[in-house]
Design a protein around this nucleic acid. Structure first.
Lengths: 338, 338
DNA sequence: TTCCTTCATTTTAGCGTTAAAAATCGGCGC
DNA sequence: GCGCCGATTTTTAACGCTAAAATGAAGGAA
């Protein structure tokens, strides 16, 4: 089948190319009879607009980009899947960039690797600071998601990590656990501050009148399974054996759980575990994993919606910090078969 | 920072736009001194080519698309990650389409949702038949990966599923297991034939002189964890209790393992399990999961390479069926702590 | 010297689309 | 019948780039 252009359609319908363009874009006032004629020709030739041409002529490309550290991390894969669906709903296609959490890659993505090709960019900022993000060269509409809030100059969709950390810890406290460990990146390199999830833990521990014990705080360089397993091994051979652990991601929890079970630790009897993200895997681990569930669908929806607004209103668009909700999902890793 | 065009660079360097274009694309013979001048201007203005314009002018867009059923399925996420890396190596960016295994979506992707925007397409054909794929309207270079081989008219990267199925089953037989079950989609809807993984199982069972028992063959509608869990529950309540099970994907195995462990079945003592894909999760399940590991890196590499050839040589390019290797990775779910 | 090559660079034209300006077409009021 | 108006459609001119053709400059051979 031949690829047909506006001209071909115009010729077949006996009108000018511009009229066809007007019909397609539902613009100006096209007479009903003309519209019908054009639509027939459009269908007959199976016309598909050339996006490059449209983009070049000042229109939009219909492509948006999503930048994440690694698409193979389930949390990002799940988010990407939903962002694709939301984008599709608006007739957009998604282009994916992996940053590997490397500053230069993140910066490249931010400054438009595919200049002028994408209408907008959604980025999970994993290493660049708000300042570095603010001073980017590219003018492509941008929405961030995840991580601590940047400055006010950028749209940003987050969840309340502090509250989530508190909730997770309170849940463990409510089960009567007193030696509650933590596994995860303890600091937020982007803003050079304590991780808000750790902050929530601290608040809950303090509020419950429990002792803060440094030996229960296990730093993990990243959010992978192996980091969780290593941290758990350290905790298990440490001076103070925990009776619960709050992991900053489900992957960390999966690794930690594997290390614990391999050492003969019973979950949740000896050790209760709470994860974070509620990826699908959490429901199929044995025991199933209690986890903080960020509303991913909502995050995807809000992110795409903010981006749409930014793309459509350009200069007048006002960046905003949007907070999506989260819930604690109780499963066997804390409450057992109950 | 301003966005500069070829003209701007040309003006600054005191040459024509075409010369700048030649320098950028490393084409024709540009005099060393001219090249140096242009390169200085290029750097000074931080020039980035406009891909839409380049694409429109008959060049390439530098974007390729990857179509998979669901990006949130770990196997596809891992493959996507590697395809992104391979693509990046060639200066390409990857656009991702989800087909949800729906024929109309798969067909849409095949026929170019983003007409003329992508230089090439990589597709995991999950529901469309080779015939339907062969008669597509779009002329964009295409490479398939996975599933049974289509006809000779399309580039296709596969692994030897029949041999892999045989290997998995032989491994279980070598452990002395005699009631070996199977969990997975039993037929290949695309070609309306038996699944080659099931074929391999059949060959191994027959060769070992074991009985074929229909009640050990558990069909799963798809490759998800829940399908594996359901199938396992059926097997456990069925007339014949298996002492081993070969699952057609690691997700199925994860679901099956969860269902089995939840029922008090010991793995591998009571039931040995082999999965397929060797996703990262397999190494962190408890017990760790024995699995067939397709060489994913190689699949990604071959796929992108075939696509590159097809894009570069167009008409003269000869489609090929390429087979990537696979290995059996032995872990605790079959051989225990050994 | 003159003409032919070869190398280096520029000019021309067009990719398919859209924004903006210009043109055409029926009325309609006077 | 003339001029004007709004509704509809067409023309024109880009958008930024590249392929192909044309030009120019520098050597060599005759």
């Amino acid at each position: 089948m031949m690829v047909s252009s506006l001209r071909d359609v115009a010729a077949l319908a006996g009108v000018s190319a511009m009229t066809v363009s007007n019909v397609i874009n539902d613009r100006a006032t096209v007479a009903p009879r003309t519209r019908a004629k054009v639509e027939r020709a459009l269908a007959e030739l199976n016309y598909r607009p050339n996006l490059s041409a449209r983009n070049l002529a000042g229109g939009r490309s219909g492509v948006i980009a999503l930048g994440v550290p690694e698409i193979a991390i389930p949390y990002f894969a799940e988010i990407a899947s939903m962002v694709i669906e939301e984008a599709e709903r608006r007739g957009w296609t998604l282009l994916i960039e992996q940053t590997d959490s490397r500053p230069e890659r993140e910066s490249e993505v931010l400054n438009g690797i595919r200049p002028r090709l994408v209408d907008g960019l959604i980025l999970y900022p994993s290493v660049l600071s708000p300042a570095e993000i603010a001073e980017r060269a590219d003018a492509t509409p941008l929405v961030l998601f995840g991580g601590p809030a940047a400055d006010k100059s950028t749209d940003h969709v987050v969840i309340d990590n502090l509250a989530a950390g508190r909730t997770a810890t309170e849940h463990l406290i409510s089960l009567g656990r007193t030696r509650i460990a933590v596994i995860g990146p303890l600091t937020e390199p982007r803003v050079d501050a304590e991780s808000p999830r750790l902050g929530g833990y601290r608040q809950a521990i303090t509020a419950a009148g429990l002792d803060w014990r440094d030996e229960l705080i296990a730093h993990a360089p990243a959010y992978h399974r192996r980091d969780g397993a290593e941290a758990m091994r350290r905790l298990l051979t440490g001076p103070e054996l925990p009776d619960a652990v709050f992991c900053f991601s489900d992957l960390l929890a999966a690794g930690a759980m594997h290390a614990a079970l391999s050492s003969g630790v019973r979950i949740p009897e000896d050790l209760a575990i709470v994860g974070f993200d509620d990826i699908e895997e959490a429901s199929f681990l044995t025991p199933t994993l209690t986890s903080i569930r960020p509303n991913k669908r909502r995050i995807a929806e809000l992110t795409v919606r903010r981006l749409a607004l930014s793309i459509e209103h350009g200069e007048t668009h006002k960046p905003q910090l949007v907070v999506a909700d989260h819930t604690l999902i109780r499963r066997q890793s804390t409450i057992g078969q109950g």
